[in-house]
Amino acid sequence: MHIGVLEDDIDQQAFIEQCLLTAGHQVSLFTRANELRRATQQRSFDFLIIDWWLPDSDGMDVVAHLRQHDSWRGPILFITASQGEDDVVKALEQGADDFLAKPLRPSELIARVSALGRRSGYTTPRPAPACPETFTLHTEEHYISVAGNAVDLTEREYRLAALFFSKIGELITRAHLLELVWGIKGDVSTRTVDTHVSRLRRKLELDGRHGLRLRSVYQSGYRMETCQTTSIAQVAN
């Protein structure tokens, strides 16, 4: 399914995106309500995930507007840190199909999305390329293990890595990385991105020896690619 996610917290965005991409869904991310509403008029979405607290609106108002004014008929999963019964009832009355409280759990999120999708007639999509078992993302603690060894990453390096791991095989532009990881839009120098990516490639050994290679795409950005494992001697050559 093509899923639109309205969530202003960048870490939560990356987490939700990673879960959905792993399950084989296509994901579009939005931080503001007006961006999502505009996108639903211009693109085709099968499913929406909407957070309650937003910088420019109330998530419940967004749900109500989509249902009452934009004629949105697809499934909507409402997410929030609140677990109060009144809040759940209000979200459902406004037009949400299901409610999920934070902190989100990957298996439950995917299961809820799949269940709502089945009710709407969508079949299970083909899974995205799998991450080699050598790499383990510890989503709650925000670190990554390579061959069982924890790698010391800064918070920004972890967010950058999580984005690459969630989009294996996809080209990610430098501008997109700046927007999602640094929160910067517009014509800004991308030298900072290149420096962080180079450091991340070295720390996580993303040179093919463990089945993943983080490759630069000339004048575009980066792509995480699966490959046959490469020995250290081959890498040196």
Rank of each mutant, 00 (worst) to 15 (best):
A175V: 11
T173Q: 09
E93N: 15
W182L: 15
L21A: 04
E140K: 12
F165I: 07
K90F: 08
A115T: 14
G117C: 08
L160A: 08
L104I: 15
D86F: 11
T154D: 11
A101Y: 06
A39W: 01
T190N: 10
G148L: 12
A81R: 12
T230W: 03
I3L: 06
T173S: 15
S220R: 15
A101I: 09
I10W: 07
Q41L: 14
F164T: 04
Y122W: 14
G117M: 03
D194P: 05
E179K: 15
D58L: 13
P106K: 09
D152P: 00
T190R: 08
M60H: 05
E155C: 05
K90E: 14
T124G: 05
A23Q: 03
H138S: 11
H142M: 13
E141L: 13
K90G: 04
R201I: 05
I168H: 10
K203Q: 13
G186L: 12
N237F: 10
D187I: 10
V217K: 15
S231H: 05
L206Y: 04
D98F: 09
L92A: 08
G148D: 11
D46Q: 14
Q234K: 14
V197T: 10
W53C: 02
L109T: 03
P125W: 06
E85D: 12
N237A: 15
H65A: 15
S189M: 09
A33V: 05
S82V: 12
S57E: 14
T31Y: 02
C19I: 04
M1V: 14
G208Q: 02
P106D: 05
